[in-house]
Design a protein around this nucleic acid. Structure first.
Lengths: 247, 247
DNA sequence: CGTAATTTTGACTCCGCTCAATTGGCGTGG
DNA sequence: CCACGCCAATTGAGCGGAGTCAAAATTACG
């Protein structure tokens, strides 16, 4: 089971130790595109960080919405659980990506957000964001853009789930992961999956055995090397090819 | 039968003829929750309407993003088309719902938006919305809420596509449609589907034959009456029951 | 009124699921 | 350090739900 505790970071985290302006994720994060002056003002919003240990929840579905979180380091999954206990993983999030925006509309988080490795997030209290956005057009615009892009991302997942076959889904996922790692300066072709086969299956609308079999098949076809959670992409073109083959 | 049309007589569409404050959809639309004064200011943003005939596009994927649209009457689908010509319907929209928010992030609409019956929309130019939101906290908050709720809606679809069986998907869809019609003062149990089996299948991640078979099955089970596009729900509890049955 | 489009229905197939057994990895405690 | 136990991952065998292909029926529309 996942604990919902650890609201309070252990050591006193020195504020402003790493500011947005010198954060290596600034190109990917919410304040992206702000001028130096606006950036300086924005940094006062990011007044706290929070550490979440592997397996713990940053927030649970139904928790009161107070802040949006920017992933500073680590890896998260978000997931819904419906009345009958069925879990649906709705996304995986890494450095510079924002968590919790689904809570704005109702005042409660709709998803649970679970760390899949020891992680750290920047806390962006929504009340402050709202206030600054009203005074800072570039921030307002960027906030809207971030929300809108989340919608576009979700539509991509809908296309994946609604009209792709199993191997296309996994290929799409691997290529997407590769791109996001690249944007963060990591290897495009070699990485550790932080989620289980079950979690990945949930996200892709497949059973864990199917995911496992697909990894084995891709391996046999020389597209990737897999050893448990470690993946190395050997043939990006081959993976892309899978998507190009209609049915 | 409960037509959504005929709200507007044939008269020339004079601007401000129907304002937000007296629009029968105001409880569902973007300006919802604004005070009288703010509402009056907001009405100046809604300076135009646009009629779209059945089968025509309000906008196409890739079109330059300039405005968000509120459905005043009629019915729309939104859909993506990927490189290989595969279509994925991402949503159906009726009175009071907003179209085009996925364009904010990139400056281009990501979806195409097609009228499934003769329809009318209010044009909300984004530049004006943005400006007013900065000056009007209640509007800003509501805009964020609307964007956020769109994300939540998409997550619901992801759960539907990722972890429900065919009959659960259709039952969920019918119940959702019923609720939305109810909120608009139409019959909760009797309505015309404006989309084809193919479009509905795309939305639900099923083939059109499967959708057709499910309608027939639901009919045989006494849950609904179907005759082509006309549907009458006979047993809401029975439909709900389908969702409660795991596996 | 005729033609095209949509819907329904049937027969058969196959992809992904279920059930089950085995293997492998990793942390914990003796 | 190794043994144990637990959880994750792999692999196999068989099944079933949804897809595919095809044809007929019904409806919509020019």
């Amino acid at each position: 089971m996942y604990a919902v505790t650890a609201i309070k970071p252990a050591a006193a985290p020195k504020k402003y130790e790493v500011t947005c302006s010198n954060c290596n994720l600034r190109e990917l994060c919410l304040p992206h595109g702000l001028c130096a002056e606006d950036m300086a003002r924005f940094e006062h919003v990011v007044y706290a960080r929070r550490r979440i240990k592997r397996g713990e929840a940053l927030f649970a579905a139904g928790d009161e919405f107070k802040a949006v979180y920017a992933v500073r380091s680590g890896f998260f999954k978000t997931s819904l659980t419906d009345g009958e206990g069925r879990e649906q993983v709705t996304g995986f999030f890494m450095g510079g990506e924002l968590l919790g925006m689904d809570g704005i509309g109702t005042g409660r988080y709709n998803n649970a957000s679970i760390a899949l490795e020891d992680s750290e997030v920047c806390v962006l209290p929504y009340a402050l964001i709202e206030k600054m956005a009203a005074e800072m057009p570039s921030l307002q615009r960027h906030l809207h853009a971030v929300l809108s892009r989340e919608i576009v991302r979700d539509h991509g997942v809908m296309m994946l789930l609604g009209s792709m076959r199993a191997e296309e889904r996994l290929a799409t996922f691997l290529l997407n992961l590769s791109k996001r790692f690249t944007a963060r300066g990591f290897s495009p072709s070699e990485f550790h999956l932080r989620m289980t086969r079950d979690e990945l299956g949930s996200y892709l609308g497949l059973k864990l055995e199917t995911v496992s079999r697909l990894f084995s098949r891709f391996h046999d076809d020389g597209l990737i090397e897999v050893q448990q959670k470690h993946v190395r992409i050997r043939d990006i073109a081959g993976l892309t090819q899978i998507l190009a083959m209609r049915h």
